[in-house]
């Protein structure tokens, strides 16, 4: 069971999300509607994970995201899942840059509809994983189209799924291939992009994301 602090200014969505989380046996310790309340609620409840909207009062700009990043700065490792209406590389990047990029997630709000996957993503973030929305990964890949042009279409697909935070097993399932094939693609990606990645899912995600963002220097060795 996760103890969750939820920040979402739309009452309709907030109530819906509380219902959804409780249905999966989690406890929403606080459900708030603004960035300031979010900061207070985290201090009061010490939750296992924070789930927050980007655009919130008072300015209806990116207050939710800023509050999340400020929270991470004060409590490194506090898992935060940001729900957004925007496919926006720079928003996700700010989140990934907060402490070491572990235990964060950036998902489009419409992913909530795929209830089980959404709850699964929440779990992965709470356990220190990194989850990035497929649309944002696609944007990152377009951003790096020069070096990635060396990859085949299948290899790009594997790279994208890796960046979303998927394990080899779930990549194989998503692509309807064997895990062996995934490993083979993985190997040739490493060669073509001149990368050295270990195979533990989470460090791999961070490394792939770092590469996609054009910062190979921050990769774990």
């Amino acid at each position: 069971m996760l103890r969750i602090v939820l920040a979402e200014d739309s009452v309709l969505l907030r109530e819906g999300l509380v219902g959804l989380m409780e249905r999966f046996g989690h406890q929403v310790v606080a459900a708030v509607g603004s960035a300031d309340e979010l900061t207070d609620a985290v201090a009061a409840h010490e939750p296992d994970i924070v789930v927050t909207d980007v655009r919130m009062p008072p300015g209806f700009s990116d207050e939710g995201l800023r509050a999340a990043i400020a929270l991470r700065r004060r409590r490194p490792g506090l898992p935060i899942l940001v729900l957004s209406q925007y496919i926006q590389r720079s928003y996700a990047e700010d989140l990934l840059d907060s402490s070491d990029g572990t235990g964060v997630g950036y998902l489009l709000k419409e992913r909530i509809g795929h209830v089980e996957e959404f709850v699964d993503a929440m779990h992965r973030v709470a356990e220190g994983g990194t989850v990035v929305d497929p649309e944002v990964v696609r944007q990152l890949i377009r951003h790096r189209r020069d070096p990635l042009a060396r990859l085949t279409a299948r290899e790009q697909e594997v790279l994208a799924l890796m960046a979303e935070g998927k394990s080899n097993a779930s990549i194989a399932a998503a692509m309807v291939v064997s895990e062996g094939t995934v490993s083979k693609h993985f190997g040739s990606i490493l060669t073509k992009l001149d990368l050295s990645l270990d195979d533990t899912t989470n460090r791999r995600v961070l490394a792939v994301l770092a590469y996609l963002r054009g910062r190979p220097g921050v990769e774990p060795a």
Binding site: L12, L13, G16, E110, I112, G113, V115
Partner: peptide, 12 residues
């Protein structure tokens, strides 16, 4: 927001 809520309800 309503469409997101609708999608969530349909998901449930």
């Amino acid at each position: 927001q309503r469409l997101v809520a609708l999608s969530m309800t349909l998901g449930l």
